[in-house]
């Protein structure tokens, strides 16, 4: 029963979040300067041409009318057509989503595989060589911008030693360098957190109790402390994953990948209102769902959370 209420509450929260965010974005993109009709029309069109385009797009109507129209259509799960290309927004998003999902999952996997062992080792063997390596790695990971890393990887492994393709997205090989550049930065963040959180857990009283009980050091560290230390790591990993599912604009740009990031970026450049709205709702849903999943994972690791 508790579980059902928990899910229901979460689901309502998701709906409310999506509603608030979509309303905000609807007005924000219309308040900032820019007009999709002018992008379509270009610099040579006459005022009449522009007016006809506005009428076709529906942007000649009053703001409340446009808003109500949009609310009505999203309630029927109709996100409309892109104002610039005329293609259905859902089609445009789902065309790109597999690539973005693959890239995000690979990036986060690389991040976790590097960060958690390294972070935990750093915490367990504090001020050891491991720890220093971890510190330098995370410093570098946070300081190095991903576009620079991407560019360097591309120049090294696609130009100097051409083992990876320079552009395109047809094969698995196309994803490796971008996933590495993405994962590096994620690893740095997760590593930091894993270390800090593990250090904190190890200093807690239950660890002393566990040791006093005569549990092996292995049990104490890797069963009791690690389990608790992973909780904040799950949250952050979830948030990072959520960000990446909205597209990794810079990485997509450097590696010429057709992901969600470039779709949304050009949507914003071109003031493609319907595309931006659909995109934001999509990202909000994905984000909320990931948070939701992280919460479930959380409650699996620590059932006490659920009751709260």
């Amino acid at each position: 029963m508790d579980l059902v209420r928990f899910f229901a509450k979460r689901f309502l929260r998701l709906l409310l979040t999506v509603f608030i965010i979509s309303t905000l974005i609807f007005f924000v993109i219309r308040i900032i300067p820019g007009d999709p009709a002018l992008i379509i029309a270009g610099v040579d069109a006459t005022a009449e041409d522009i007016q006809i385009i506005r009428e076709k797009l529906g942007t000649d109507r009053s703001l409340p009318m446009q808003y109500l129209g949009w609310l009505y259509s999203i309630l029927r799960f109709d996100f409309g057509n892109s104002m610039i290309s005329g293609e259905p927004v859902t089609k445009l998003i789902f065309e790109r989503f597999p690539l973005t999902l693959t890239l995000a999952l690979m990036g986060i996997a690389i991040g976790i595989l590097v960060a958690i062992p390294l972070g935990v080792m750093s915490a367990v063997k504090r001020w050891s060589l491991w720890d220093y390596f971890g510190l330098v790695f995370s410093q570098a990971g946070m300081a190095i911008p991903s576009f620079w890393l991407g560019m360097v990887l591309l120049l090294l492994f696609a130009v100097k030693i051409p083992i990876f393709p320079l552009f395109g997205s047809e094969s698995f090989a196309h994803y490796i360098l971008p996933a590495l550049s993405l994962g590096f930065g994620r690893a740095a963040v997760i590593l930091r957190l894993a270390r800090a959180s593990m250090v904190e857990e190890l200093s807690k009283e239950y660890v002393i109790t566990a040791r006093a009980k005569g549990l092996t050091e292995r049990m104490v560290k890797y069963k009791h402390a690690l389990k608790n230390a992973l909780l904040p790591v799950i949250t952050i990993t979830g948030i990072e994953l959520g960000y990446m599912l909205g597209g990794a604009i810079i990485i997509e740009q450097v590696f010429s990948l057709p992901g969600l990031g470039r779709l949304f970026l050009f949507g914003i450049y071109q003031r493609d209102f319907t595309l931006i709205q659909g995109g934001v709702v999509f990202v909000a849903i994905v984000f909320s769902m990931i948070n939701f999943l992280a919460d479930i994972l959380y409650s699996v690791v620590n059932p006490k959370i659920r009751v709260e």
Binding site: M151, L154, A158, V159, P162, L166, F167, Q253, S256, R262
Partner: peptide, 17 residues
């Protein structure tokens, strides 16, 4: 091939891609 990054276009020309 849609390549937004100038440097990649240049490298593509140099390498023959």
């Amino acid at each position: 091939n849609i390549i937004p990054e100038r440097a990649v276009q240049v490298q593509g020309l140099l390498s023959g891609a």
